[in-house]
Design a binder for these strands. Structure first.
Lengths: 201, 201
DNA sequence: TCTCAATGTAAGCATCGCTAACTTACGGTA
DNA sequence: TACCGTAAGTTAGCGATGCTTACATTGAGA
């Protein structure tokens, strides 16, 4: 909050650009960001950002990775509060849908980003799938989840959750403020669908 | 295929622009289209397109509506070949996922378009939902679909189908040629998920 | 046949992504 | 401590884009 006299070298340009881009995508959508505007915002010449990001797409890739990390954090946080496997499983689904509802533009950017250019995205997805399958097996062992191919259950659940999230995002393209109460209700609806749909509990 | 000597007035500029934009989005993605390039392609000055579309977004809206109409045509075609309600229901789900797999960019554009600007999109969605619910009720009356809230079944199915479609689109962002055999396999997988997931038959 | 509205053109503005050539100053080394 | 190489900034500018304004052309209806 205090960069009073900056001379020539910014010092934290990369972080600064990344953070303001992140916030701008979140609040205004991805088409609202421009390299030159970011540079102006940071009080730096319009060519400076290119010292830190080869081109605009790389910057967006970095934003997407940051969003993925944040999503992951929220999923971990949600599941950490639960004891048994089934509850964790549900909590993660709810948190996933909620994130999409609360950060539609980030969610969209995450999924429109080539996972070759942003390998962290692919890694995170793979790890999450493994965790889901592990949870399902754990739940089955505890008698909480009916016996069925864990991969099929995971895939079905992923499709259902991702589908709900997408339906919300796609229906409210520019709606940036969905009250967290609304989001919660939607997320709970997702849980019920997961229960009745897959036959859990 | 023959516009040999065109003098001043093009004659079909609007359709021409719309069709080449549609094709360009389908094959190269939405970011590949520019007003000026479209004008060049049509052999017309770069200001001419704005006589037919107020701005670029309106053009994209029109492309999205055209894509929605095509999707709808394919869904109708798929369900028309089936006799009973359950089979129709499944055929529509399969066709939906297949369309997404074969035309990812159009599918994406359709859903990122504001349905206020392109009201046809909203209309089509509503009508499809009504048709799905009618099919479910019909299937229930015929004893083909278990008794449960038809709206819940419809919503679950929509989420699952849309989710699968999105997972395919999001995972292959630029993959434009997914063999139709692959697409068919994926669509069949969706059907199985619908069966096992919702408990149909 | 006249005319006017629809449809096209030419020219230009502001912005954008990105590059090239130059400058500054930080941090490791002699 | 003086030096210096390089990371990180600057200025200037190219080509492209979306879009506007003022003007030109022409087909269709009165």
């Amino acid at each position: 909050m205090s960069e009073p006299a900056r001379s020539y070298h910014h010092g934290h340009l990369r972080e600064t650009l990344l953070e303001t881009a992140f916030g701008l995508v979140d609040t205004q959508g991805v088409e609202a960001i421009s390299m030159r505007a970011l540079a102006r915002e940071a009080g730096v010449s319009s060519a400076a950002p290119f010292r830190h990001f080869a081109d605009k797409q790389r910057l967006l890739d970095a934003v997407a990775e940051k969003a993925a990390a944040e999503l992951e954090r929220q999923l971990d946080e949600a599941s950490a509060e639960c004891s048994d496997a089934l509850t964790q499983f549900r909590a993660m689904s709810v948190a996933y849908v909620r994130f999409a509802a609360e950060h539609p533009a980030l969610f969209d950017l995450m999924h429109s980003t080539d996972s070759v250019a942003a390998p962290f995205l692919g890694t995170v997805k793979d790890e999450r799938r493994l965790k889901l399958i592990a949870l399902i097996i754990e739940g089955q062992n505890a008698g909480l989840i009916p016996e069925a191919d864990p991969e099929l259950i995971a895939l079905t659940s992923e499709a259902l959750t991702h589908g709900l999230a997408r339906m919300i995002v796609d229906r409210h393209p520019r709606l940036r403020t969905l009250s967290s109460q609304e989001a919660r209700q939607l997320a709970l609806a997702a849980t019920h669908l997961l229960q009745s749909g897959i036959g859990l509990s």
